[in-house]
Amino acid sequence: MSGVYQAEIVSNNSIDNEAYLLTLKAPEIARASMPGNFVQLKIEMADGGFWRRPFSVLDTDGGNIKILYKPLGKGTLALTKFPPGKIVSVIGALGNSFSFPSRDSMIILTGGGIGVPPLYNLAKHLIKSDYNPRNIHFFNGAAGHDSIVYLEESAELGINVYAVTEDGSMGIKGYVTDGVKQFLNGMSKTSLSNEPVMYACGPMPMLRAVGLMVSEYDVYCEMALEALMPCGFGICMGCVVMARDDKSVEGFSYKRVCREGPVFRADDIIWETDGKKWLNY
């Protein structure tokens, strides 16, 4: 159950590679939040922008929630100016969350850009639930070494962390899916008994590539989607994606990223229909 809360900003600092770490005092949300959940922050914008902005929860710490963001749009740019002590209106915790895999799974986390936070959150929860960190493989993709986020912090969890950069300036060269494919190819050769299970989050073009990859490799995958979200709690019907729906006459229905998601099974998302992309990505 979610609510509207007035939360105090504990800290809002620039960390590495243009990312900011925002800590909010929001005990009710911290208590309820599960990996994949998000919050809607009210951010005043000078040009008349007035929607809230959705942020996935990176971590919880006592009564605090942490959010990792990059100032890429007018909302996040305005947010960088918010000082500690300021009270902001937050709605949360919103959306569904990742399901936990079976204990002996080979857990692959595929994150692109600022899609890393919910996967970090998931890794942390899994470890807290006594999953073996050595079975968790986190592929963190970015354009280059200067834009990759939360790599060291992820490594500190004791999991396997792989940097993948498009320009090759750090780790594996290529898209994050190239890194994961190399890993999956290697795995089948060593015939590990552990079944791979994937969790992904990132920009839509990346998630589409992940969707195609897991279908080719026959790997179960859940992905947290992003969308423009006027409300975030299901009343506006604005943030939908086309998803398989056996109960509907058409075989699909438009599902709300904020309510039925943000976490969807990769094989439920319909990326294109009649060869036509339905999304401007």
Binding site: G49, F50, L228, C236, M237, M242, Y254
Partner: peptide, 24 residues
């Protein structure tokens, strides 16, 4: 029942928003 329009369905404008949900 109506499926509604494909996304994108909404866009934020100055002090307003556009929607075309399509009566889903």
């Amino acid at each position: 029942p109506r499926a509604g329009h494909p996304p994108p369905r909404v866009f934020e404008t100055s002090s307003g928003m556009l929607n075309a949900i399509g009566l889903q």
